[in-house]
Amino acid sequence: MSGWKTCPKPLPGDWIVISAGLLLVVMLFLTLWHGEHAAKLRIRQGDTIYATLSLDQERTLDIHGPLGNTRIVIHQGRARFVSSPCRNQYCVHQGWLSRASQVAICLPNQISLELLGAKKSYDSLNY
């Protein structure tokens, strides 16, 4: 046990391990740090808030709009439109929403998805 009391000078191999570790941290930061992760999904149906749901669940929702049924899925902390009765399918093409403040709107079927973070980063969206 006495050998542990003194700290030997790092060998070149140690420096390689330390550098590789630091590099990994930097790379992970750059690849994974994409703004604030969202905690909740707000679904609006027409002029009302249909639901505000945790993203921490696996769930499929069917919501009725003027054109018919829209299907929304929550999966692994993300949410998206999966199917919609609208013609253009812009809402489905928006794909997965995963970060706070991301929005997908289906104008024809009057349903919108918005991801909420700890604090709202803006009051309204210009588009």
């Binding site: 803006y122 009051d123 969206l125 210009n126």
Partner: peptide
């Protein structure tokens, strides 16, 4: 002041605020 996000033309979510 009121804060406004400007929609990214090809992605969901704002490009600038």
């Amino acid at each position: 002041p009121w804060r406004v996000g400007i929609q990214h033309p090809r992605q969901p979510g704002p490009i600038a605020m």
